[in-house]
Amino acid sequence: MRKGYIQVYTGNSKGKTTAALGLALRAAGAGFKVFIAQFIKKRRCSEHKALERFKDLITVKQYGTGFIMSGKLTKSAIDAAQKGFEEVKNIISSRAYDMVILDEINVAIHSKLLNIKDIVDLLNSKPQGIEIILTGRYADKKIIEVADLVTEMKEIKHYYKKGVKARRGIEH
């Protein structure tokens, strides 16, 4: 964790948040403090219950009003994302955490809840020693350029297309 890298998990398949949560668990296992900022998301899921067991090392906060399906932005969705971004900036500059996960931030940028320039400026000015992970579909080219590691989750086959709904403990 000496340098602290910027990692991106993007793509049209599942596994982006799961990969980030795996990193959070691995970091906590090494005694590192982790902050998880969930943009867009509002619903409490099974992973929140599991992460509570690591409450001394992992903090989770949600800055969303729920998934944006219609493409219409509400003032409350914009305000929630902006509030979250301001808190994340303070958290990163405080150096209180070794790892900061910005879950679904790529979607927040793509949906115009957050400004890409602000995110890139934050990434370019991050203190050394903090690992930052960004997740979500639609990773902007500028995010990919500044990142040290980019993984694209590519859907080959998905049971959702056969009508399988999100299952407790697997997708939520």
Results as ranks from 00 to 15, higher is better:
residue 1 M to L: 03
residue 8 V to I: 12
residue 8 V to M: 07
residue 8 V to K: 09
residue 10 T to N: 11
residue 13 S to I: 02
residue 13 S to N: 10
residue 14 K to P: 02
residue 14 K to I: 02
residue 15 G to L: 12
residue 16 K to C: 02
residue 18 T to A: 14
residue 19 A to N: 05
residue 20 A to E: 00
residue 20 A to Q: 03
residue 21 L to S: 06
residue 23 L to Q: 12
residue 23 L to R: 15
residue 25 L to H: 14
residue 32 F to N: 13
residue 32 F to S: 01
residue 35 F to K: 04
residue 35 F to N: 03
residue 36 I to R: 09
residue 38 Q to N: 06
residue 41 K to V: 00
residue 41 K to G: 04
residue 42 K to T: 00
residue 44 R to H: 12
residue 45 C to Y: 13
residue 45 C to G: 08
residue 47 E to M: 13
residue 49 K to A: 14
residue 50 A to Y: 09
residue 50 A to N: 09
residue 52 E to Q: 13
residue 53 R to W: 07
residue 54 F to C: 11
residue 57 L to W: 07
residue 58 I to Q: 04
residue 60 V to P: 03
residue 62 Q to Y: 08
residue 64 G to P: 05
residue 65 T to C: 11
residue 65 T to D: 10
residue 66 G to I: 10
residue 66 G to P: 06
residue 66 G to M: 08
residue 70 S to I: 05
residue 71 G to W: 10
residue 71 G to M: 08
residue 72 K to V: 13
residue 72 K to A: 01
residue 72 K to L: 10
residue 73 L to W: 07
residue 75 K to Y: 10
residue 76 S to K: 13
residue 77 A to K: 13
residue 77 A to E: 15
residue 77 A to V: 09
residue 79 D to L: 13
residue 79 D to G: 00
residue 81 A to P: 01
residue 84 G to N: 11
residue 84 G to V: 09
residue 85 F to T: 06
residue 87 E to W: 14
residue 88 V to S: 01
residue 89 K to Q: 15
residue 89 K to H: 06
residue 90 N to A: 15
residue 92 I to A: 03
residue 94 S to A: 12
residue 94 S to H: 05
residue 96 A to I: 03
residue 97 Y to V: 04
residue 102 L to P: 08
residue 102 L to M: 15
residue 104 E to H: 01
residue 105 I to F: 04
residue 106 N to Q: 06
residue 108 A to D: 04
residue 112 K to Q: 13
residue 113 L to K: 10
residue 114 L to G: 03
residue 118 D to I: 08
residue 120 V to S: 01
residue 120 V to Y: 04
residue 120 V to F: 03
residue 126 K to D: 07
residue 128 Q to W: 02
residue 129 G to I: 13
residue 131 E to K: 03
residue 132 I to C: 05
residue 132 I to Y: 09
residue 135 T to I: 08
residue 136 G to K: 15
residue 136 G to D: 02
residue 136 G to Y: 10
residue 137 R to D: 08
residue 141 K to V: 06
residue 144 I to P: 03
residue 144 I to R: 15
residue 145 E to P: 04
residue 146 V to K: 01
residue 147 A to L: 08
residue 149 L to Q: 00
residue 153 M to I: 14
residue 155 E to I: 12
residue 156 I to N: 08
residue 159 Y to S: 13
residue 159 Y to M: 12
residue 160 Y to N: 02
residue 161 K to R: 15
residue 161 K to M: 03
residue 163 G to R: 15
residue 167 R to N: 00
residue 170 I to H: 06
residue 170 I to A: 01
residue 170 I to R: 11
residue 171 E to A: 01
